[in-house]
Every structure is written in structure tokens, then in C-alpha cells.
Amino acid sequence: MAKYARITGTGSYLPPRRITNDELAAELAQRGIETSNEWIVERTGIHARHFVAADQFASDIGVEAARRAMEAAGAGPEDIDLIIVATSTPDMVFPSTAAIVQHKLGMAGCPAFDVQAVCSGFVYALTVGDAMIRAGNAKRALIIGAEVFSRLLDFNDRTTCVLFGDGAGAVVLEASDEPGILASDLHADGKHVGILCVPGHVSGGQVLGDPLLKMDGQAVFKLAVGVLEKAARAVLDKASLTESDVDWLIPHQANIRIMQSTARKLHLPMEKVVVTVQDHGNTSAASIPLALDVAVRKGDVQKGQNLLLEGVGGGFTWGAVLVKY
């Protein structure tokens, strides 16, 4: 059994269709909804987002991110023996998006399943992959976050439709004798279901309830900042490290204000925070691996650095993972 699991490759993908705030504001104006680039940027830090084409699904963009991660790791599909996809926007009710990704990558035989923890999904999936590798149940895993939130948005609600975008990020996680995933801390509290949800379901061939995203922004913000700080401190304590040992904070890219507040509570300067939300909005479970890949490819994240990954999402779920890159 492996002593550790390490990230050996990263990849990400944004669909070609890019929509700026001005373009979105113009579309909303046709519906009688008033917003502006300035209003969106001031409240969220978002400048643009990407939406999938009509024939693109979570599996398609997940496959693209996975291929890039495998290339970075020097691995091929034949080298992967576990696939975990974090998504809240699966291709189908079933089978899992992971099984569809497996097939599109030309693979067969290894376990493949989805993890659904909304915006905390990648942190959950990475923790599960780490545990499976250290237990000897896998040697090299694909951990993917892939979301097509554009299909859940209510474009008559300017407080939510401006926030989200589509995208995918992935990492290859390998068994190693060197430290990689140092610690993780996961939580959920179902009493907060109502503050961020899509309260619809399929029954008898029809959609029952409301299949569009609903969010109480103020409640989410207040809860998010508090639980993210606690999860961050928990993983640092588990690894016997302090805030000063963190080289990069890579948070879920939901809102620049949440990221700034979290950084302040952890006494980390914004220069140590990876911020990509301006380019793609909130991509839910895809946002952390997407931001990680951007930072790696820019050369900001270097081998041997300590990375603090953390996310918070509907459920209410939250968690953090401390990584030696």
C-alpha cells in the first residue's frame, strides 16, 4: 500500500463560447432585467464566463481536462485505474458521468463513479481518491471536476445568473512514497439545504418542482466565510503547519469577496491567493482544479510548495485539502 498520493499532472478546459458581462447584460435587457458590467464586477469580481454548446455535456469537457492532465503527468488512459468525477450537472440521471468519461477516453474495467457535493465536490473527490490510493485500491487516479451550470440558471434572476459558468478541471493523483495529500477536512450540514439548491426532480417523465438554481446570497456568504476558515485551520493543525507555511491558497472561485474575507481571516495576503474567477465565474466543482491548473501552467505553483485547497457549496457542504505539490 502506498504511503501517500501525489498530484502529478493538472489540466483544465473552458468551452469556446465566452460571454462578457456586457454581452450578458445586453441579453438580460431583452428580458427586462437590468444589470451592468460595473454592477457584476463590484459584487463578484467576475468579468466573463464560458457556456457550453448545445451538444456539449459535462463528460465532454471533463474528457478534455482529463486528457490535458494525463499529458502533463506523462500518463495514458491505460495507466489510469480509477476515475472520480465531481459534478452536480451529470449528463444523465444515470449512469455516472465518470462511466461516460471512461468510455470516451477509450478505457474499460477500472472503477468509475461520481461525487456530488456541489462546489465542494472536487475537495470531496480528491479526499476519496487519496484514501483509495493509500488503501491500495488504486495506483493512479483521474480526479475531475466538470460542470455545465448554464443549464440550471434562471435568466430572470440577475442575482444568480451572472455568477455561474461552465468548465472542467482535472488532476492525476498517483501513489507515492513522498508526501502529497497532507491532510483533509470534510463537512456537511443538511439544515442549510434551502439557501443554495435546485429544487426539482424527474418523475413519470416530467420535471417536478423547480429545476433552476435558487440561492440566498447573503446567507451563503455569511456561512461560507466562517466554515472555510475553520476547515483551513483544521487541515493545518492535522499537518502540524501554520498559515505561514502556506505558499498558495487555491479557494473555490465563487466570489472575490468571499476569497478576500477568507484570506484576511487566515492572515494571508492576496498575493498568495490564486484568483481566476474573473475569467470564468463560478464553475462549481470545476473551479478549484481549474484555478490550480492555471497557476501551475503560469509557473506560479512550484514543486514542493504547500497548497491549501478549499471549497464550500450547496448541501451545505464544505472542506479543505492541504497538498504538498
Rank of each mutant, 00 (worst) to 15 (best):
S96H: 10
M215K: 15
R49F: 10
P199S: 09
S120K: 11
G9W: 11
E27V: 04
D79Y: 12
G217P: 01
V63I: 12
A112H: 11
V171D: 09
Y325L: 11
G136P: 01
V63C: 15
K222S: 11
S150H: 11
T20V: 06
V273K: 10
Q116S: 10
V323Q: 09
I143T: 01
A168Q: 07
R233C: 02
A263C: 12
I288C: 01
A295Q: 12
G62Y: 13
A48I: 03
A188F: 14
S184A: 13
N306V: 06
L142A: 07
G190H: 06
S120R: 01
L14K: 05
Q278C: 12
A58T: 15
G11Q: 09
G315V: 12
V301D: 04
E178P: 08
C110I: 08
S284C: 05
I7N: 09
D185I: 01
S88F: 13
A65L: 13
I195K: 07
A99K: 02
P199Y: 10
E243Q: 14
K238N: 07
I83L: 14
R233K: 05
E38F: 06
Q302T: 03
S96A: 13
R6C: 00
L322Y: 10
A239M: 00
K191T: 10
A29Q: 14
I100W: 08
L266M: 14
A108M: 06
V323N: 07
V277S: 04
V85W: 02
K238M: 05
P251K: 03
A291V: 10
G281E: 02
G180V: 01
Y4I: 03
F113M: 05
D91Y: 13
E229Q: 08
I143V: 12
R151H: 04
D55C: 00
G45H: 08
V93A: 12
E64R: 15
N306C: 15
Y124H: 02
L152S: 06
T44M: 13
